[in-house]
Simulated assay, not measured.
Amino acid sequence: MTTDTVPTIGFFVPSGVGIGYTGPGVFLKRLIGPLRGVVNPRVYAGERPGHQTDPSLVPVRSMRVGDSGPLRQLAWALTATWWIIVDHRRLDVVHFHGTYLYKILPALACAAFRIPYVLVPLAAGADFSLRGRSTRIPGISQLVRFIGRRAAGGFALGEEIAEELRQGGVPAEHVHLIMNPVSASFFQETAADRFDKQTLIFVGVIGKRKRPLLVLEILARLREQDPTRRAIFLGPFASPSDRTAFTSAVSELGLDEAIDHIEFSDDVSGYMRNSSSIFVLLSETEGIPGALVEAMAAGLPSVVSDAGAMRDIVTESNAGFVVPADGDIAADAVSRLLADESDWHDHSSRAREHAERHFRAESIAEKYFAQLRAAMNADPVSISE
């Protein structure tokens, strides 16, 4: 491939690219946006009920998906493999967005057609991890290493994921750290009275992995000190059972009038810049959560769990606290930030300064493309090698 050729990148996204706040779709949109004209993106995506497709990421091929499960994973794997067989002459490189077990078959198809592919796991401890539940199935860890060795590269949202890629067979020199890109809207002017609002914000899919019920417990504790304190939950439910568990907990804790839930929104930045005081995310596993870096760009102090790269980011920036999954300890950390306006502003300024240096979408996209170009120019490895 010559350097003046516009490469065609196939982005495979089983979780979908809906308009509502979904981390993988938002990440991809901000990565592709600055590269328009530099690359020719072809999106292969899932379609989820209730998720309107983003006009800037209209899939060239798509399939209806729902809650995850073995049969749906198999359906996606077979469908994605068929797309690669049909379109292989059009693709210069394939980007597997979120590296799950159902990427094994399409990755093998890429190897068969000698199409370079890169692996982009979005959370540590997930299916690409050799310590994961799925990789303990006989033969699966061998397949993970097989596609890892043949990958042209791996992009990691944090050092923990980078190590999993290396353990999964991706050559160390082809593993690259990548930040979660933040669009310019999050860096715009913020409301002057955000501290006074005394409002927590949780952004992400409301499901067990993100521990939203723990955030509800923290809010209940905080309201014992100040009954005006509130929380915004912005994101869809992971499943009907998660919706039931969340609404039940809200009722049991007496928080019906203290919660604003927005399931889908095109303007996450407005809530962060104007309506909230503290960002809270206490996930079990993460990579580099887009919501965290967005919150920092908006100047929000953060209280997070020690998952993925969150500890390193919050500690390095000194823009909040890293806490265990303990309601009392986490509530105390939030309370400290909400008790002292001067201290809150110090954390806010450090958060924004760190985001300015590390998370602007344009600079991240430029580095990503340079590393992807190097991967495309490397000799692809076939199945037989």
Rank of each mutant, 00 (worst) to 15 (best):
D343K: 06
S349T: 15
G132T: 07
R150Q: 13
I364V: 15
Q225P: 00
G98I: 03
R145A: 08
H88T: 08
L292M: 13
V215H: 03
K210W: 04
I85R: 07
E341A: 15
R352V: 04
K367V: 12
R194V: 13
V65L: 15
H261C: 08
R229G: 03
N318S: 14
R89F: 08
T8E: 11
F264R: 07
F187V: 03
R61M: 08
I329H: 09
D67C: 09
S185G: 05
A126M: 10
L292H: 03
S141R: 15
H354F: 15
N180F: 00
L91I: 15
H88M: 09
K208T: 14
F202A: 03
V58L: 14
A111H: 01
S317M: 10
A325I: 09
R336F: 06
R373G: 09
A172I: 09
A111Q: 11
P7C: 13
G308Y: 05
L300N: 02
D266E: 14
T79Q: 11
T22H: 13
H97K: 06
A45K: 01
S384K: 08
I329K: 13
V323K: 06
G327L: 06
G235T: 06
I115N: 02
S269N: 12
S251G: 09
E217P: 02
D306Y: 09
A374R: 10
H51E: 13
G98P: 01
S276G: 05
P116R: 03
R150P: 08
G254N: 11
D87I: 05
A375I: 04
H176L: 11
T81R: 12
E163V: 12
A112T: 13
L214S: 04
I137E: 11
F237E: 06
R352P: 00
A152F: 06
P181A: 12
G204K: 01
Q73I: 02
V314R: 01
D332I: 03
R336C: 09
L71V: 13
A258H: 04
G23W: 00
F27T: 07
L222E: 01
P138K: 06
N40K: 12
G33S: 14
